[in-house]
């Protein structure tokens, strides 16, 4: 569906993306990386916003800027969202329908479905400027899933959402994913774990990993240990303390290490796999 071929992007002398190669088909992909890793730049290149210095983005084997169907099939949510403050939410979404060439006789039902998906149907007649930050984010998700978008690119979709809305977002993605390519850029590992079938890890503009969530977890297999603080010094080799928690007054460290330890290892999580990759413990 979407192919990214040898894509590089620089801003003046700073190279942000280094020869990215990706092939994304139907499914939900999580684009995971630290702040400044190049997630947003990659998404913007994939949306046709940035022209790359090298390489190209293809949609159904056609460069996106030449593809007639790409922009009709694209649903996009940028990090910053909010315009037409004086229109109602319904009107703002209607405007997006028109921009996206959704037939006017289908707009009304498409808007109703999208707003229902994000639990904003009762706010349809409210002005955009009266919506809270979280509601605005949900409105952004609604416009991205409007109609029959085949390609949905979401940049930090869950930023500012409360826990119940995050659950709702995950359910919405699960319902939508049947025949679509959805790419969710985030630095929240839990969101990827809950929503995505596949994960792409990007660090300093390079793809470190592209595969299933299970595969990423397995990178940390036999590398995760839960140790008491007092025993921390006993861990052999190079180590990285991932989490510190207090259980009944005893402080435990969740430690990542490449060296086999004398005590049993823990079941790895997606976060452990991700940290192994970015700490080069893989």
């Amino acid at each position: 569906m979407i192919k990214v071929n040898n894509l590089s992007k620089s801003f003046q002398r700073k190279k942000v993306l280094h020869s990215i190669n990706l092939e994304l088909d139907i499914g939900v992909y999580g684009l995971l990386g630290a702040n400044g890793a190049g997630k947003t730049t990659l998404l913007r290149c994939m949306a046709g916003l940035f022209e790359s210095q090298q390489g190209e983005v293809l949609y159904n084997d056609e460069p996106i800027h030449k593809s007639k169907s790409f922009y009709n099939d694209l649903g996009y949510l940028p990090q910053a969202f909010g315009m037409f403050q004086e229109l109602t939410l319904y009107e703002m979404t209607d405007y997006i329908c028109s921009l996206r060439n959704i037939a006017s006789n289908q707009c009304s039902s498409a808007i109703a479905r999208a707003l229902e998906s994000v639990n904003l149907e009762d706010k349809a007649r409210d002005r955009v400027k009266t919506l809270s930050g979280g509601m605005l984010r949900r409105a952004g998700i609604a416009q991205a899933i409007l109609g029959d978008s085949k390609v949905i690119l979401l940049d930090e979709p869950t930023a500012g959402l409360d826990p119940s809305e995050r659950v709702r977002f995950k359910n919405t993605i699960s319902c939508l994913k049947q025949d679509k390519m959805i790419l969710i850029s985030t630095h929240i590992v839990e969101d990827v774990d809950a929503c995505c079938d596949n994960v792409i890890v990007i660090d300093e503009g390079q793809i470190l990993f592209n595969g299933s969530c299970v595969k990423l977890k397995n990178i940390a297999l036999n590398k995760v240990y839960q140790v008491k603080e007092a025993d921390l010094a006993g861990i052999a080799g190079e180590k990285f303390s991932l989490k510190v928690n207090d259980k009944g007054g005893v402080v435990y460290h969740r430690v990542l290490t490449q060296d086999k330890q004398a005590f049993p290892s823990e079941e790895p999580s997606l976060e452990d796999g991700y940290m192994c990759l970015v700490r080069r413990l893989a």
């Binding site: 046709g48 694209l74 969202f81």
Partner: peptide, 20 residues
């Protein structure tokens, strides 16, 4: 103003592309 100054300009630009 919405196309030049608002936080939504990125989205508007992506959707409008060569149409408008």
């Amino acid at each position: 103003k919405d196309y030049l100054n608002s936080p939504g300009k990125e989205l508007l630009f992506v959707y409008k592309q060569n149409r408008d």
